[in-house]
Design a protein around this nucleic acid. Structure first.
Lengths: 210, 210
DNA sequence: TGTACATCAGTGAACGCGCGTTCACTGATGTAC
DNA sequence: TGTACATCAGTGAACGCGCGTTCACTGATGTAC
């Protein structure tokens, strides 16, 4: 009931960090509570003093990592001009070494797993919207001219809607490219997915997303 | 050593089909051999007369489903003009009911799971390339003009490279959009991912990918 | 056509194992006087 | 400063369970004569 002891909170965080690494690399079902606690430097018995269940841990891991990504994108979108912010966000997301490490955005490693668990889905909902808002803020408006718009909203509204659609598509492209790059047995093909995705999102010529 | 009996081959196919449904809906680790065999109308003991292990089944399920998708795309790309073929392929992939069912392309449900298993990765390599080739064949060349090309290859080569890059990015977008749509707890957001992805891939105005 | 036998697909009991979870206990930390 | 006690984070043995896998067996199918 009282405030959690500093030490307790720190241990809890260590468990979250350990699970963040292991779950992304091996999948939620591919890692036992035992392994998570060992990675955190503890024994498995103490786990349930910090989390109600392994499922609760998984949901919180996804939520925490996604919220961290959303905060980082918000920060970048506020401190840089839109073009360079977009560039930085996209190239960091598609960085080949990060992709190969299996770490990076949990959407690419845990997406389908989290989507199957209702606890997971509701946990990540807010962070996902945060990522989309940050991304929409740095998206260029209408890179290619759009024909036959229905034109019933005020000017400015359409721009926002357009930027939001670009953000939705761009996040889809990034998530898919990372998953497909990890799936490709051929390293050249893996790299090609990442490069093609970066090129399709970043308007200016992009030579090397490394 | 001899030819497999017709009955044997048919049973094997029933197991593959059952696993194709269950693995996509619940994940590979979320379904036991027991459940697969029950869904196929058999008992669990007979499984190992048809497959060496559950891992081998998983790899073959992914390979089979992906090869089927590649064949379907090839067929569409050969029998229709590129624009309508692309439209049909993309709208079928992003169909909201199919997405909600959890069936459809195994890349979206099993992608990260398969990517973690080396047997899985090597099993799907060929089919993945087949999908990309079919997609590249129906992709429009340079929807937006590309500036500062290095221009050292023959004309025609650049077009191919460009179409291939579009195919890589388009497949990434489709895979990501389906995963994110399933992850979104909000049905409007789910629909928005699918619509935005379709609109970003299909050049002409696309009103409803249903 | 009918009987005897070989083949083989599928059954279901059994195995060991690792998982998620519980709980009585230990040992360290912090407070009271 | 030092002792006695309460609190509490973490330990590790134990639990039941479900999983992947094996195997002796059954019952149906097909062949030989």
């Amino acid at each position: 009931m009282a405030e959690p002891t500093p030490r307790r909170a720190e241990t809890r965080q260590r468990i979250l960090d350990a699970a963040g690494v292991l779950f992304r690399q091996n999948g939620i079902d591919g890692v036992g509570v035992d392994a998570v606690m060992k990675q955190a430097g503890l024994t498995h018995g103490g786990f349930y003093a910090h989390f109600a269940s392994k499922e609760a841990l998984a949901a919180e891991v996804a939520q925490t990592l996604l919220a961290k990504a959303a905060r980082s994108w918000c920060e970048i979108s506020r401190t840089e001009d839109p073009d360079s912010a977009l560039r930085r966000i996209v190239l960091a997301y598609l960085n080949p070494e990060k992709v190969a490490s299996g770490l990076g955005c949990p959407l690419t490693s845990l997406g389908p797993d989290v989507a199957r668990r209702s606890a997971g889905r509701s946990a990540v909902g807010g962070a996902l919207k945060g990522m989309l808002e940050a991304l929409a803020r740095v998206m260029p408006d209408t890179p290619q001219p759009r024909s036959s718009a229905i034109g019933k909203t005020q000017p400015g509204h359409d721009e926002d809607r357009n930027r939001r659609n670009h953000a939705l598509a761009a996040l889809s492209t990034m998530v898919g490219a990372v998953i497909l790059a990890r799936l490709a047995d051929d390293p050249d093909l893996a790299r090609a997915f990442l490069d093609a995705a970066a090129e399709s999102i970043i308007p200016a010529p992009a030579n090397s997303p490394g």
